[in-house]
Design a protein around this nucleic acid. Structure first.
Lengths: 105, 105
DNA sequence: CCCATAGTTGGATTGTTGTCAAACAATGCG
DNA sequence: CGCATTGTTTGACAACAATCCAACTATGGG
């Protein structure tokens, strides 16, 4: 369960990022990460009305698209927005999307 | 064949815009519109390797998501990026996406 | 060592999407 | 009017995606 694969920054594809964020559940997860920073998977999907395995699939989609990072710490897994990679590769994109999603600054 | 429905600006949804642009073919069409302005459907899908009916479905997806406008003139249908609506609703989003897609300024 | 907790994985199902082909519709030209 | 051009619609099909359930893995606490 350790160290799930993340794509290299150079391998992050624009259309895959957009596809990952085109699902309302995944968008909500991204918004939570933007607002609350690094949180656990349980917190990320709390009250979203999806099964934990469904949430896990969404984390995988987001991770493989390069949108989030995950980090294991003890029994918990923390996920966070992959700001560095996204900003480096697509300047201004994440901010524009979060602004459009009404994330409080 | 006239006057296909476009959503009102207020009804344009972020996740639908992202989904529309998450397909490489549709992204390429959007890039062409950004570079060349208003062009015909035939020009928009030229050399893309898709059947014209497939292209038509993509125009529909883009139009219903609020990404493009279409306008009939004689036998031709011209499509263009819906900059006004997108910029009004999601400031900076379209520019960030086009920048990420390497559209020349 | 057992057990509860936190996530992932695999299977099954259901629905969506991308594609082509063929038929259709609308427009203007000769 | 016929006919070529331009694009849409419909049907079919395969591939993909979202979901749940069940089984599994890993970790730490008692």
């Amino acid at each position: 369960m350790r160290l799930l694969p993340h794509p290299a920054t150079a391998d992050i594809q624009l259309t895959e990022v957009l596809r990952a964020l085109s699902d309302p559940i995944r968008m909500e997860i991204a918004v939570r990460l933007a607002v609350r920073g690094e949180i656990t998977c349980t917190e990320a999907c709390d009250d979203l009305g999806v099964h934990k395995s469904t949430a896990s699939h969404h984390y995988r989609t987001l991770r493989e698209a390069g949108v989030i990072m995950s980090r294991q710490e003890g029994r918990l897994k923390y996920i966070s927005l992959r700001r560095d990679g996204l900003d480096a590769r697509f300047p201004g994109l994440l901010d524009a999307i979060l602004l459009a999603a009404h994330v409080p600054v």
